[in-house]
Design a protein around this nucleic acid. Structure first.
Lengths: 186, 186
DNA sequence: TGCTTCATGTAATAAGTTACATGATTGC
DNA sequence: GCAATCATGTAACTTATTACATGAAGCA
């Protein structure tokens, strides 16, 4: 008979449960401006999209929980708005240790076993990846143009944008190197 | 009344369901050598670890399903071994379109709302990230030393290893840039 | 009037981790 | 003999997506 049937859902070794990450994203977005749940999802997609995602199925239940806890309310226009308690909670969440999303890269998984499908299929695979990354970099360049380096909030957005650009360029460099290697084989 | 109550679990728009990705990892690992489920997990952790994860809770049920379908059997020593049908299935899976793991980067999420916690907390955050990435790069360097560029299987492993190195170095470059920016503010 | 977008929400389903149970094998 | 590792598996639980339902608001 197990002594403890408790599932440690709230926190394990100081690392917040993933649900807290959704709360963090929602509270964070509401700290910038009050908005509807629908808008919230659009904003998260547009501004955090290159490193974060949330679906309606997560956002609405989270808004419900946050409202119950008094961390979020509604303003005159009916939009969700963060409360003082919510702002305090946000700051606390921001200081928790970031979770490590278990890595799952479908492209690398396929390339690792690439011998089974041969050189050409691998070249096709990285060519498709190259197209995607190029599109993503173009999208990031578009966003960069809209951000003001002197705005106190947008300065931080620029830092995360830069991370996406560095990673995208690194992927392109790796693709070029990998293509050259693959073409030299056989 | 909805006309269709079917949940498209197997395939959506040609993209395989994520469960197929676990089958891919398991069949792929078994294509290199027969082994136990326990060993399978160790090998996946050691060799795919920097871009893929699987837990026991996934591996054993998957091995069970694959065995039922005749894609996997047991050899004389009792180890799981891939069958001819399994190899065909592996090749088919390798040609499916890679899934896009929804991005969830806890570090960037915190940095994006960094204004709430201030410059110093952000510097601490990226310093911790820098330590982790440095360790990961050192681990990759160790693995690189064990791989033979002329072995037909390990050549592909080297390609994926290189991806990890490029991304790691890009993250370090971004951290250096970000630190300089943060220290110049205020 | 009818189309599109905005808006809120739920139910079914999937995917995955963690903790636990249980036993065999191996090395000392 | 005993501890550590190897090995297999399951139950509970969490998180998340997707499809669907439903209706209001804005505008041709």
């Amino acid at each position: 008979m197990p002594l403890s049937l408790v599932y440690l859902s709230d926190r394990v070794n100081g690392v917040p449960r993933p649900a807290a990450q959704t709360e963090l994203a929602v509270l964070g977005a509401l700290s910038l401006a009050p908005m509807s749940g629908y808008r919230l999802r659009q904003e998260i997609l547009a501004t955090l999209g290159h490193f974060w995602t949330e679906s309606f199925g997560q956002i609405y239940p989270t808004l419900g929980r946050l409202t119950e806890e008094g961390l979020v309310g509604r303003d005159d226009a009916g939009r969700y708005a963060i409360t003082a308690a919510g702002l305090a909670r946000l700051r606390a969440l921001l200081l928790t240790e970031p979770e490590h999303a278990p890595p799952r890269d479908g492209v690398l998984l396929r390339l690792f076993f690439g011998r089974q499908i041969g050189r050409q299929a691998c070249l096709d695979l990285i060519a498709a990846t190259e197209r995607e990354v190029t599109l993503r970099l173009a999208a990031l360049a578009g966003i960069r143009g809209t951000l003001d380096p002197d705005d106190p909030d947008e300065r931080y957005a620029l830092l995360t944008l830069s991370a996406g650009e560095h990673r995208g360029r690194a992927t392109l460099a790796w693709i070029a190197e990998t293509r050259a290697l693959l073409e030299a084989w056989d």
